[in-house]
Design a protein around this nucleic acid. Structure first.
Length: 308
DNA sequence: CCCATGACCTGTTTGC
DNA sequence: TGCAAACAGGTCATGG
């Protein structure tokens, strides 16, 4: 289940093995994997041909690859709706990627056998002998091509402008996050998973950060003090950096880096997936509770539920 | 606007 | 043994 650390590992792999290369051809094997590209598979493939890939970027769980070399080509322009409205000089293009639940971006030797769930193949116009593959069992993830926000130095795709900065972004505003928490009438885990408040946190790292902070997942955000928010953010950053240092968390073969290798953070998890195992602080068995069609893992002693 | 919930998707595990 | 239900859960549309 790729969250920020896993996506960052993939970004680094793309940076090393894909950035700077020019696309020769794209094959779309499953339409659902390009569903966010509303102009369809043929348009996606045709417009990528000949483009050069720039530096790989990430915000939260989203990845993107700025591309250059094509003509003016927003989706609306390509559809012929209003080709004169958007001057091509004010914006760029980027390939947006989201791994969803089970998506993988793999750099494979050309001619390696196709994976069972190969959805998209990108061939390059060079002699390096490798290609980029998007493999995705559950098809929650996908690729698409978008205009970038005019003037944005990071070439942010316009369709993810609503996604908040992530806690490892130097420009993340801790004070603004605290103020937003105080305004919300919701509970802390919901807020941590809300990608418009803070991005990159999913079910695993939310439970880990809450365990480290000794906070129950249903604590109302309106009860948070500035120091409590600061401590929580510190634990979010610590656990993500620790995971990043060992290549992320791999529960099964569904999360791997671009070279197909797993991460090793699973063995360091304190709460997630540890139902009935002793809390590493106090020895009380960790509990699992159904929560929002998924699970929350917590220590019933260290993380007391809020009153009421 | 704010917040909560269901739909989407497939392979594996669990239970009767 | 076989089948069904539960489970994994990120994002977005929708409805209160």
């Amino acid at each position: 289940m790729p969250e920020l650390p896993e996506v960052e590992v993939v970004r680094r792999g793309l940076e090393r093995w894909v950035s700077g290369r020019t696309i020769d051809a794209v094959e779309v094997h499953h339409p659902r994997s390009i569903r966010r590209h509303t102009a369809g598979a043929a348009d996606f493939a045709a417009r990528l041909k000949g483009l050069r890939i720039g530096a790989a970027r990430r915000r939260g769980k989203y990845l993107w690859l700025p591309v250059t070399g094509g003509g003016p080509a927003s989706q609306t322009a390509a559809e012929g709706i209003s080709p004169m409205v958007t001057p091509s000089v004010t914006h760029g293009l980027a390939i947006l990627a989201h791994l969803g639940m089970s998506g993988q971006l793999l750099v494979q030797p050309e001619g390696a056998p196709d994976e069972k769930h190969l959805r998209i193949r990108v061939r390059f116009d060079d002699a390096l002998g490798t290609e980029l593959r998007f493999v995705d069992q559950r098809t929650f993830g996908g690729l698409s091509l978008h205009d970038t926000v005019p003037g944005a130095a990071d070439h942010l795709p316009d369709v993810i402008a609503h996604i908040a900065r992530d806690p490892l972004d130097p420009a993340f505003d801790d004070a603004a996050f605290h103020d937003a928490l105080r305004r919300r009438r919701t509970t802390i885990k919901r807020a941590l998973l809300d990608q418009t408040l803070i991005s990159g946190v999913g079910n695993i790292y939310a439970d880990e950060a809450l365990w480290r902070s000794r906070l129950h997942y249903e604590r109302p955000t309106a009860t948070f003090t500035r120091p409590r928010t600061a401590e929580l953010l510190g634990h979010v950053r610590d656990v993500m950096n620790a995971a990043l240092a060992v290549g992320g968390t791999s529960f099964d073969s569904l999360y791997v880096n671009v070279n197909g290798e797993s991460g090793y953070f699973e063995r360091s998890l304190d709460a997630y997936g540890r139902e009935d195992e002793p809390c590493r602080r106090c020895g009380t068995p960790i509990r699992r509770r159904p929560w929002m069609n998924r699970s929350s893992y917590f220590c019933p002693r260290c993380q007391r539920p809020p009153r009421g």
